[in-house]
Amino acid sequence: MAELRRLRHAVAEEQDTIWTILQQAIQKRKEEGSEQWQDGYPNPEVIANDIEKNYAYVCVDEDDVILGYVALIFDIEPAYENIEGHWLTERPYAGIHRLAVNQEPYVKGIATWMMKAVEPICKELGYYSIKVDTNFDNIGMLRVFEKLDYVYCGEVYFRGAARKAFEKRLD
């Protein structure tokens, strides 16, 4: 039987748990030899801001255990305005940032599940495009983007570093 899970807004009381999950992701990126998230970002203040602005979502199981975290943002991402390449669309979009999966308990496929789960939320709010980016060496996220038919659009820059940028049309 498939495990029941859902995506819902995070609440302030979950900030410490979310930070623990992000710390696991930061450590995993370091162990994989990546520079991504090794510069003090993200941090607890970023999570608090995500929760305050209603960007913060958690994937929970049937016991409300948090399996993953993602920020789903419907505001313009300034870095996306200066892409070296071309987006598929020029319309309003949802941006996905700070996706991280709990390693304790680790449930295979949660990142993919969360990326799929945001799609109906976006459509319901009238956003038919999702834009994302990741480090060149984040093989796990690159595989998720490929699996879910995200299209490589070029490079964007965050804190001086180039990132691969992707978009998926939802219509």
Rank of each mutant, 00 (worst) to 15 (best):
D133I: 09
D171H: 04
Y128L: 08
Y55Q: 02
R98K: 03
Y93I: 03
D149G: 08
W113K: 07
N43K: 15
E14I: 14
I26S: 10
E62F: 11
L22R: 02
K123M: 11
I73R: 00
V132W: 00
R169Q: 10
G68E: 11
L72A: 08
N82T: 12
K164T: 01
V70W: 00
T20W: 01
I66L: 06
K53C: 10
W113G: 06
P42E: 04
H97P: 00
N49R: 09
A56R: 14
H86L: 11
K147V: 08
D171L: 15
E45R: 08
E104L: 10
L7M: 14
A161Y: 09
R169G: 11
E119C: 15
Q24V: 01
I21Y: 01
K123V: 13
A161F: 13
E90W: 05
E119M: 12
A25G: 15
E35F: 14
E35G: 06
G95T: 08
E84N: 01
W87R: 13
E119L: 11
Q38S: 13
M115W: 10
N138Q: 01
L67V: 03
P105T: 10
I121P: 08
R143H: 12
Y106I: 02
D63I: 02
D133W: 04
V118L: 01
Y157W: 07
M114P: 06
P44H: 12
N43V: 05
E104R: 02
F136V: 04
Y128G: 00
I96A: 09
G95W: 07
C153E: 10
Y152S: 00
G154I: 09
N82G: 09
A56G: 03
P42R: 06
E45P: 08
I21M: 00
L4G: 15
R159K: 13
D64C: 04
Q24P: 00
V151K: 11
Y41G: 05
Q27I: 06
S129M: 09
E45D: 11
E119A: 14
G40K: 15
R169V: 12
G140N: 05
Q24R: 00
G154W: 09
H97M: 13
T17L: 04
T89F: 10
R29M: 15
F145R: 06
G68C: 09
A165K: 07
S129Q: 11
G85D: 07
E81N: 13
E62Q: 14
G95L: 03
G109C: 01
I76D: 14
A79D: 06
D149E: 13
P105M: 11
L148N: 07
I21K: 03
L67K: 10
D133K: 15
L88I: 03
R163M: 04
D133F: 11
G140M: 02
R169K: 14
P105C: 05
I96V: 15
L4R: 12
